[in-house]
Design a protein around this nucleic acid. Structure first.
Lengths: 248, 248
DNA sequence: CGCAGAATTGATACATCTCAAGCTGGGTGG
DNA sequence: CCACCCAGCTTGAGATGTATCAATTCTGCG
């Protein structure tokens, strides 16, 4: 594992890139100090499995950088991705000893880990952590339900457009690269991972991406580099309400 | 609205049927007393919509008896159920002013409601409530992810078997009617609601139920009364691991 | 160069949807 | 009391979207 692949991390929480969004977001300086005592960083390489479903999991943590996936696998090998973990997302469930899903790093990944038991103890004494975790879990539940609509009712083309829209939206939020109406980003997933996310085969994913490209909804450079010239058009293909879908 | 349709409710929490499973499960006597001051019961008839997606929602609450559903609807009318609410399940999201989904009573329903603002205030002061809500939300998230596998990867027959297994399991837990290996219950959903849950058409639901019946996996009396002679056989048809699927 | 993993493209099979007709059982009004 | 009605359900026949199987092509890399 080459250290140079990963950003050097300052151990302090105060200038952590996910400080204001992760499970620690509401903690004050004192609480952060307590967290710093039980935390440690861990690096994973692209493709590496972080834990297997059913295996004991003695830590919980936050994705600091990179992308991970949660997937479920049936006995005969059918796979369904059930979560896409982006920076600041939480991994693991307090109170649960074994992983319920396979957790896989799809890019190089840095995690901020807490040993499970000390973290659980701290949660009891620190309402700020539990409050934030509740908020994040409610958001994840909304996202999961949104995805149920995609899986259950959308066509293959709409599924692809929905996924592209999600990734595009995230990149706009991160890079603030508005200005032109064009959105540019790299797909963080292989065609197969996209298929697992969308409940499709990788061939269907490939065909639909080709179709969207041919019709000018997206532009492709190589396999992964995507340009969306007109985001509203993409949303339209996704079958979403044209408004921002504002909840809360 | 005929009162006789609904059970008469003792106003006290102490002998409430969902006392030990709902959001108030961890509350002590003092906390319960505070909750009692802001709670009120509300009855809904089968088929009645409790709130429409997007409408303001000035209360949260628990299902006391009966069954409700959460559904999302696309502009063109495609519908996906994203939640099935059973007794003790929580409705609404603290901090959110408008409903994110349509909430519909599919049977006569009794809800224990709390006005939103007082409940939110109380949550801040009462960790027991927030803790329990976190636990329940994590469980719902697991259920949603389980359902994503069903929607994304299972065949129509497996989907039906999965739904029957869920309902059967719930009834076993409630009625403790073990003894013979036979499980008997009534479907609380129409074919159409089942279709909305499973991402199928109602015709496909009907055909698959007929097939399972013809092959002896289930027995039917009328349209709704189901007998499962061999639960393991049903689980097998659902494509689930044969073990109990024990998590946590 | 040549290999391997990732992706594309084609031909065909098949599960589910769609459209359509008919059935069933419980309730209602004549 | 019976005929009718209607929502819920079943069943059939044909259309269609996606999966499956198979052959190439791309791309980066040792």
């Amino acid at each position: 594992m080459l250290n140079e692949k990963f950003p050097t991390l300052n151990e302090g929480c105060s200038d952590c890139p996910i400080r204001h969004r992760a499970v620690c977001a509401r903690c004050d300086a004192d609480e952060l100090r307590l967290l710093e005592e039980i935390k440690y960083y861990r690096n994973y390489e692209a493709g590496q499995t972080i834990v297997w479903s059913g295996d004991p999991m003695d830590f919980v943590g936050s994705v600091v950088s990179g992308i991970a996936t949660l997937t479920q696998t049936m006995e005969d090998g059918r796979r369904q991705m059930v979560g896409l973990l982006l920076p600041s997302d939480f991994v693991g469930r307090p109170g649960r000893k074994a992983a319920a899903y396979d957790v896989v790093a799809t890019t190089n990944l840095v995690m901020c880990c807490f040993r499970r038991k000390p973290f659980e103890d701290m949660m009891v004494r620190t309402p700020h952590i539990a409050q934030r975790l509740l908020e994040m879990t409610l958001d994840e539940l909304d996202a999961a339900r949104e995805w149920m609509l995609v899986l259950g009712r959308k066509t293959a083309r709409e599924k692809i457009a929905s996924l592209l829209a999600i990734i595009a939206r995230r990149d706009v939020a991160l890079n603030m690269a508005r200005g032109s109406g064009r959105i540019v980003f790299d797909l963080p997933l292989t065609r197969e991972a996209m298929a697992d996310y969308l409940g499709l085969t990788l061939e269907t994913v490939s065909r639909q991406i080709s179709a969207l490209k041919k019709e000018g909804v997206i532009e492709l450079e190589g396999k992964r580099h995507v340009t969306v010239p007109d985001f509203d058009r993409l949303l339209d293909e996704a079958g979403d309400d044209s408004d921002g879908g504002v909840l809360s």
